[in-house]
């Protein structure tokens, strides 16, 4: 089954919409769902043109497609556990929060907190992602715990903060402090990064581009060839500001 949601023109287009109801499983029971626009409760049909194609008996066969201006729609895919969502344009904050299964594809850019506290499933963002991509919530000790987040473009600051499990793969560059407070999982940055892995406790991070402002509290252990990335990397242990047992691999700059 395919559910197509095309956003309607709104009189106040900047108002955030909170739409955690948009997960494939919910459309098994129809399209009558509640979302919020600012402080008002709305039905899905007040904000979207809804088209349903085909039928489904189980949620894993449901594909939800979002079209139109969706950049202010938050929480799409929150608690999603199966099926798939395709967002043709940009998506608002908190897309894929707590997601445990299924796939989300974002053809445009994603706003902040993409895949927050994610536990499983896959998110693919073909554009750029905002700050706090694949992270956690304020005060919580664990961020993303499982699954995969892949971003074709760049991300903002604090990418994969508190990463505890799963894989975060950024094809472009990240902003400041990627991998801060990491305690598990794997972070791959193909582009550049600034101050990576501050205060990391565990987990591993590979950076193929240039590292700016490398922190002084990483201990260089060895130089190693990483065959899967076809590079020679300097391997650091850290962060020794704490009892850090994390691994940070940075492409070696000198000739080898």
């Amino acid at each position: 089954m395919r559910v197509i949601l095309e956003s309607k023109v709104r009189s106040k287009p900047n108002l955030p919409i909170e739409a955690e109801a948009i997960i494939p499983r919910n459309f098994l029971k129809g399209t009558d769902h509640v979302v919020f626009e600012g402080n008002k409760e709305r039905t899905l049909s007040e904000l979207f043109w809804i088209f349903v194609e085909g039928t489904a008996v189980s949620p894993e066969n449901i594909e939800v497609i979002l079209k139109g201006d969706t950049s202010r729609i938050k929480r799409v895919g929150e608690y999603m556990d199966t099926g798939s969502i395709v967002i043709e344009g940009d998506i608002g904050m908190h897309c894929g929060n707590f997601m445990s299964g299924g796939t989300i594809e974002i053809r445009g850019n994603a706003d902040a907190w993409l895949g927050r506290e994610m536990r499983g499933g896959t998110i693919l963002c073909r554009g750029n992602a905002g700050h706090y991509c694949a992270t956690g919530y304020r005060g919580e000790k664990k961020g993303m715990q499982g699954g995969k987040v892949e971003v074709s473009g760049n991300t903002g600051d604090f990418c994969a903060e508190y990463l505890a499990g799963g894989t975060v793969h950024i094809h472009g560059s990240t902003g400041d402090f990627p991998g801060a407070e990491m305690r598990g999982g794997e972070l791959i940055i193909e582009g550049d990064a600034t101050r990576p892995c501050g205060n990391m406790k565990n987990g591993s991070c590979v950076i193929l581009g240039t590292v700016h402002d490398m922190l002084p509290t990483f201990e260089k252990i060895e130089r190693r060839v990483l065959p899967e990335w076809k590079i020679t990397a300097d391997v650091y242990k850290g962060d020794v500001a704490n009892r850090g047992k994390g691994n940070l691999c940075v492409r070696s700059t000198g000739l080898y």
Partner: peptide
């Protein structure tokens, strides 16, 4: 600032050897 705090923490923890000559 961040780098300096990190360095101080490492020193207090007894990891001064890791710290470069200037931070």
């Amino acid at each position: 600032d961040y780098a300096v705090f990190s360095a101080l923490r490492a020193i207090v923890r007894g990891n001064a050897s890791v710290i470069p000559r200037k931070v």
